[in-house]
């Protein structure tokens, strides 16, 4: 337990180091997730529009 605490403390710099890693993780993960979500949204939209168009031409 004490070992883990000492590790997380990072020689007194824990707050700075973990804040930096947390911030970087949040920004990178957030950006990648947002990019994937936007892509899925556009793909779904394109599929729907195409089916509408096909429906139109069938009429």
């Amino acid at each position: 337990m004490a070992e883990v605490e000492a590790y997380l403390g990072m020689g007194g710099y824990g707050a700075f180091i973990w804040a930096a890693y947390l911030l970087a993780t949040l920004i990178l993960a957030g950006l990648l997730a947002q990019s994937r979500r936007a892509l899925k949204k556009q793909e779904a939209l394109l599929l729907r529009l195409k089916s509408i168009r096909r429906g139109d031409s069938d009429d």
Binding site: L31, S35, R36, L39, Q42, E43, L46, L49, K50, R53
Partner: peptide, 25 residues
């Protein structure tokens, strides 16, 4: 992330094209 975003932009451009042609129809 870059290939994801470029693909997303390309599909968005297609969506716009299809929308335009639908409106035209």
């Amino acid at each position: 992330t870059l290939v994801t975003r470029i693909k997303s932009e390309l599909i968005a451009a297609r969506v716009q094209n299809v929308q335009r042609s639908l409106h035209g129809n």
